[in-house]
Simulated assay, not measured.
Amino acid sequence: MIAARIRSMGSPHWLALYGVILLSWGALYLMTLPADLRAAGAVYGAEFLASLCIVTPDAAGYLGLVAMWTIMSAAMMAPTALPAFAAYDDLSARAGGGFRWLVVGFLAVWLGFAVLAAALQMALFQLGYLSIFGDSQSLLLSGVLLALAGAYQFSALKDACLTQCRAPLAFFMSHWAEGPVRNGLRLGAVCLGCCWALMLLAFVGGVMNLAFMAVAMVLMALEKLPEIGRHITRPLGVVLIASGAACLGFGLIG
């Protein structure tokens, strides 16, 4: 059974999905600003960075940020949904295709998230809470985001969304008649319900910090696994709340 499953995940539509994920991470790598250029930017100012076409609010503008968040969402969230995609692929193999439209619906939801996240980044940058790299410049902002993400780990909405993500076969069986696009939208919505608060921690860890994105992706993927996720969600919430409290304490003292 496992060998057959692995072989089926080498079919063209799976290879196309893997290609999207790899291209997204490749694009993120190309957009990441190396440490030496960050140092040069600190010396020569924002005009130096703008001249390098770096994706920052002042250089790229809102649409550039939307594109960056879209790529980041695809790179981070598509891998976390692989078990759900596999469950749908098993069902659709018997009932007649639709895999690509499921993925389209899923990514459409995260495109909507990218639009809102880019607007939030632009607003926080204009208010001086974020650097041009998308990193928090305020311990108070960092503390609020960490505490919010930590508290959300204990919420009923998070638990309900994780329940759906951890049982993709039952999820799709319940909504199968709606078709692949609407199933993709539903899957994207419950995935967003699981992960939006953790995704916003990019403002704390660094919007273009590949290490942060990789760690966050792994944590979000593990949360969606039934046997592992239940042991991660609440402890992670405790760590985030404690980190947020520490940031808020230092911010108020400072």
Rank of each mutant, 00 (worst) to 15 (best):
A3D: 14
R5D: 13
R7M: 11
S8L: 09
W14A: 08
L15C: 05
S24V: 07
W25N: 06
W25A: 08
M31V: 06
T32W: 05
A35M: 12
A35H: 02
E47W: 01
P57T: 12
D58A: 13
G61R: 04
Y62M: 10
L63R: 01
A74T: 05
A75T: 10
T80P: 05
T80H: 05
A84V: 07
Y88S: 00
Y88E: 05
D90E: 15
L91Q: 15
A93K: 10
G96W: 07
G96L: 09
G97E: 15
V109H: 01
M122R: 12
L124V: 06
G128C: 04
S131F: 08
L141W: 02
V144P: 03
Y152W: 04
S155K: 01
A170S: 14
F171E: 07
F172S: 02
M173I: 08
H175K: 12
W176E: 09
G188S: 06
G188N: 03
M199G: 00
L200Y: 04
L201W: 06
L201C: 05
A202D: 10
M217R: 02
M220I: 08
L222D: 06
R230E: 09
H231F: 15
L236N: 00
I241N: 02
S243G: 13
S243F: 05
G251I: 08
